[in-house]
Design a protein around this nucleic acid. Structure first.
Lengths: 225, 225
DNA sequence: GCACAACATGACCGAGCGGTCAACTTGCTA
DNA sequence: TAGCAAGTTGACCGCTCGGTCATGTTGTGC
């Protein structure tokens, strides 16, 4: 029989993260990974990102393993379930968006800042096609928390733009958060879209958020979760 | 052995459509269906629409059959493959959109007409969640033709609105066709969206299409297929 | 350089899928 | 109302999937 604490279940391992050297890969607060394991873990994440991008959530673990050049079992050693793997990728994406939003906060040009955020978000979404992975997560889950983090980082950006008079009065941070993915989805209906076409629809959506020519909206703003 | 011409392969059946009484169900130009078969066919379509709406393209034929109250084999009698079934539903949707666009053409109020089209399209999309089924079809396929039909019906609507000065100069029919689904996708990121929230984003997108406050778009307009 | 925990491997499992078909039932026509 | 083509059925097939695990391999601390 195997030891009770398998690495795929990090919660079961007793860990002292402070003792590990800085810069070491610590998967979710676990002990540092062995060198080969760290390499493989990264290979799985990269392969999965590509495979999910190409085939959506139906991408198979076998195909991901093949692309990463390792055996299927190894994938499951690092990510207990397929869902865990998808979550890890979506989480990485969410963390990036949060960082971008926080960096742009307090800009002297709130209009440019908001536009840059929308552009960065759509661009990443386009490149990684991670949209499918951003579906509504289980309440209280890690991804749920990370999505809220993105949302909460967007709100001040929107507030600043509105205060500066470059954004319509009736639009909220939640609106912008939701509209973030629209330009990429828009392009998806095309068989072979020009790789930068999404920028066009970022423009259209952004113009729809401007005060000039804004007509009253038919429905009150939603609240986040 | 079975007779060579199975109903699931209508092309193999010799047919004289003119001889059948009007109003009879004629699946793709075949002979009229028996009463029970016509009932079942409709039940399959309804069940599939609901099941695809709930679970997307991964909805299983078994589940659809169960929901329709018939055996799995019967589903395959009416639709040779799962893809055929999905196509039939998407085709129904496309035909409706084409009809709406054609009806609204030549309106005395092109602005209201365009808004009504966008609202109708988004509303249907929201109710039937048929968006997943509208993915890029095989070139030359029936669905490809029907999508082009919708597209071509939208173009004059957009041209009229532009000519009336209620639409920005740099927006094309293809743009509007692509943006049609955006409001529904926008709402999808919410766990439990208010059922009419999509109307809010129809408003935002439509305002983005107005001439007032329009800024130059970053990318040239796409062409359709 | 040894010893052992950590890690990698791939054959294997049960479940569920899309799709088939021989046997049975039923609506329609003459 | 008899006869039969049209329609229905559900057991069955081959296949792929996510996930497991006994066995073999390897990086690492001493």
């Amino acid at each position: 029989m195997r030891p009770a604490a398998t690495p795929a279940d990090p919660a079961a391992a007793v860990v002292t993260p402070e003792t590990s050297p800085p810069g070491t890969v610590l998967p979710d607060g676990g002990r540092p990974l062995r060198a080969d394991a760290a390499r493989n873990r990264e290979a799985v994440l990269t392969a999965a990102e590509e495979e999910f991008a190409a085939r959506g959530l139906e991408a198979s673990i076998s195909a991901i393993a093949r692309r990463a050049g390792i055996a299927k079992g190894t994938v499951f050693r690092h990510f207990a379930t397929k869902e865990d793997l998808a979550t890890a990728i979506a989480a990485r994406h969410a963390r990036e968006l949060t960082a971008i939003a926080r960096r742009l906060r307090g800009s002297t040009d709130p209009e440019a800042a908001l536009l840059e955020f929308l552009t960065e978000a759509a661009g990443r979404l386009q490149r990684r096609r991670v949209a499918v992975l951003m579906t509504v997560p289980a309440p209280g889950s890690e991804l749920d928390r990370l999505q809220r983090e993105v949302h909460d980082a967007v709100v001040p950006l929107v507030d600043e733009a509105r205060a500066a008079g470059v954004l319509r009065e009736d639009v909220t941070g939640t609106d912008v958060f939701l509209l973030m993915c629209a330009p990429v989805h828009t392009v998806d209906a095309l068989a072979d879209p020009p790789p930068e076409l999404w920028r066009r629809y970022v423009g259209v959506v952004f113009d729809g958020l401007r005060p000039a020519g804004a007509s009253p909206l038919a429905h009150p703003a939603p609240t986040w979760r």
